[in-house]
């Protein structure tokens, strides 16, 4: 039977850390260099030579390939279809992914980790294999095509195979995990107490979600959307396998020009045009984020 609770304070441990790292000016440069060199050799240089290729016609410099693209409604339609694919896929993954990511991020149960793994599991399977899976379901006798007919959404004979709708469905499934992962990270970083605070101040749960959590997640939602959009407009395997000849998009056209028709300059021009769209989007996105940064901040 004893004695007192020790009241002694632990000896001070808050002194200056043993040695604060003194940064030698060139250390950051050295750390950055390998990445930059790889980036330069494997991305910037090929990208520049691609751009250069797109301005070659025969043996001379020319904008003929761009003129051909811009002056032809067919290619505008191709570009429009590609951008539409990107937009619709982004919207679908956002609508499906947002609630899933939110619930996973807020879930306290020990199943949450398991469910997250399940959600992202498709990422471990290549898009080609997943697209083959969809093909089985999309042929006329496939489960999904039959279901669409059974629900009265289409009249037989109907198949999702070789249609743009099929590509959208397959692509949404392929890209959904990326959206969920991105949004999951975003929601995890938003303090749940903020929503509770809003509720205690009189906001209905849905309003608290809207006014606080979704407002704070805006940057992450934009990031996830940009990621999915850029992948959707540049992906090749799914449109090629599921869409076949009819659902022609920029990526399959680039492939066709490169591999089938060996018209590399025109393929390079198509690639550059697609790249410009992605870059413009990324810049706009950056702007939006910047603007947001002035009035808002993440917790």
């Amino acid at each position: 039977m004893t004695a007192a609770r020790p009241v002694l304070d632990a000896p001070g441990t808050d002194g200056a850390a043993a040695s604060s790292p003194r940064l030698i000016p060139y250390v950051p440069v050295l750390l950055f260099a390998p990445c930059f060199i790889i980036y330069a050799v494997l991305f910037i240089w090929p990208q520049l030579s691609l751009l250069a290729t797109s301005f070659v016609d025969g043996n001379q410099w020319s904008v003929a390939h761009y003129q051909r693209f811009l002056g032809d409604g067919y290619y505008w339609e191709l570009l429009g279809r590609t951008l539409f694919l990107g937009v619709i896929t982004t919207v679908i993954t956002l609508v499906l992914g947002l609630p899933v990511a939110y619930l996973l991020a807020r879930m306290q149960s020990r199943w949450a980790g398991f469910l997250l793994v399940i959600t992202t599991f498709p990422l471990l399977v290549s898009a080609v294999v997943r697209s083959f899976g969809w093909m089985v379901l999309f042929f006329r006798d496939g489960l999904v095509s039959k279901l669409v007919v059974a629900l009265g959404l289409a009249s037989p004979p109907f198949q999702l195979m070789y249609t743009m709708s099929g590509v959208v469905i397959a692509l949404a499934q392929v890209l959904l995990p990326l959206m969920v992962l991105t949004l999951y990270g975003v929601f995890r970083s938003i303090d749940r107490d903020l929503e509770l605070a809003a509720m205690s101040l009189g906001a209905r749960p849905s309003l608290a979600l809207w006014l606080v959590t979704l407002r704070l997640a805006r940057g992450g939602i934009l990031a996830g959307s940009l990621l999915v959009f850029s992948l959707a407009i540049s992906t090749f395997a799914t449109p090629s396998l599921v869409g076949g000849a009819r659902a022609h998009v920029m990526s399959t056209a680039i492939y066709e020009q490169t591999i089938e028709l060996l018209n590399w300059p025109f393929a390079a021009a198509l690639s550059s045009i697609l790249l410009v769209f992605v870059l413009v989007l990324a810049l706009v996105y950056g702007r939006v984020l910047e603007g947001r940064g002035q009035t808002e901040a993440r917790p």
Partner: peptide, 20 residues
């Protein structure tokens, strides 16, 4: 009653101020 109908003022440990 749900929280938003309780009319309670709550101060959180981390303050939970709306950062935006």
């Amino acid at each position: 009653l749900p929280p938003h109908k309780r009319d309670t003022g709550l101060v959180f440990q981390n303050y939970a101020l709306f950062p935006h």
